[in-house]
Amino acid sequence: MSIFTTRSKLSNKEIVYFISINEHLKKCVKLLYKDNYSAIEAMILQMQGEKRDAEDVFRYSLSKVIWLIQEKYIDDKADIKTYIYTLSRCLWVSTLKKKNNYTYYTSDSYHKNYDPQLLENLPFKEDDLFFHRQFSNAYSKCKPITFENLKSIDKLSRYWNTISSNLSKLSV
């Protein structure tokens, strides 16, 4: 399979393929961003969120979907839109629950791209926005992090464990 740079659209299968081999990542992310952001933003705004929340939810969900493809949790038969929407909704609902601000949104549970069954086989079920933001903060403070140098991972792990104990006390 080869990429045609002049083509503005890639199929779902092509996107999954390129992400899984870590090629043309920027182009794939660009397409996924353009295709999915507005739907996620609409969902977050409808569910008591703000534009900033929508941006954060979307980028964390998208980064997770890309990671799931890279780790072969998702194959090319899957609809990426559904994964992005479902993970985004799950992430935002967990965040709202943590804020004690969650009321059930029936209309959104029947969205064409929402499929809770997808979550059954995926890791990090208990994620929320607050957790992600804190981890991003810890990650940026412990840079540079490389997998070859285990010391940097250990440093991040130690730093994370010290701050994560206080996590539940903080609010979003």
């Binding site: 920027k26 992310v29 990671w67 890791p123 981890f135 991003s136 990650y139 792990s157």
Partner: peptide
Amino acid sequence: MEIKEIKDRVKIEHNRELIDKVKEQ
């Protein structure tokens, strides 16, 4: 948190950084 999960989350952070760059672009 286990080291494996930390590693996975670091990979997700790498992707997040890429998304931020694309968003800026």
